[in-house]
């Protein structure tokens, strides 16, 4: 796999985003990674889309670092962008803490952000400011909690339909 493009792209990204405080551009093995404060994500994404040709938002997701890195904010929010003209990719990352897990929404820039931000919100509780529709998409109305957080027990079910009379509920390894 040709990775020379990462070495060519990373300095250009550094130059373009130098004015944004707190930005760090790293060269991972698979693509350049841009880490920056949450408040600047929207402008950085717009720069990447308009000036660097990263026209497609491929993925929005988050990582919960509960218990792993004390002192650092709890969540990583990760965006993957892709350029269609050149076979290039870039990863945008920011860290938000549990008390204020809010990042800007990229819905005004990319239509694909709508569904992906809904999923990230319901799974982690990350709020996307500017996305008016954060209804549950994979989960259902009335589901309490954010299942992909590390403190959500995998076996904690929230049934919508009451079980039949005389039927024993499934044995559970966690709390019901």
């Amino acid at each position: 796999m040709d990775t020379g493009w990462i070495d060519r792209l990373a300095p250009r990204l550094e130059a373009a985003l130098a004015a944004v405080p707190g930005t760090a551009v790293q060269r991972a093995a698979d693509m350049p990674v841009v880490e920056l404060p949450a408040a600047h994500i929207f402008d950085a994404a717009r720069t990447l889309r308009d000036d660097f040709g990263f026209v497609m938002l491929v993925d929005v997701t988050a990582v919960d670092w509960l218990g792993r890195e004390p002192g650092r904010p709890r969540f990583d929010v990760v965006w993957h962008l892709r350029s269609l003209d050149a076979a290039e990719r870039v990863r945008l990352k920011t860290r938000v803490d549990e008390a204020a897990p809010e990042v800007p929404s990229l819905v005004p820039l990319f239509g694909s952000a709508a569904f992906m931000e809904r999923e990230c919100h319901e799974m982690f509780g990350i709020r996307f400011a500017g996305n008016a529709d954060l209804r549950p998409i994979l989960l259902y109305e009335g589901f309490a909690g954010h299942p992909l957080r590390k403190d959500y027990d995998i076996h904690h079910e929230q049934p919508l339909v009451p079980y039949r009379d005389g039927v024993a509920p499934p044995r559970s390894r966690g709390t019901p």
């Binding site: 299942p147 995998i154 076996h155 904690h156 079910e157 049934p159 039949r164 039927v167 509920p169 390894r173």
Partner: peptide, 15 residues
């Protein structure tokens, strides 16, 4: 799929 999302058998809600 023994997790939060999946009904552990349909006989919990229908015969």
């Amino acid at each position: 799929y023994d997790n939060y999302a999946v009904l552990q058998g349909i006989d919990l809600i229908i015969p």
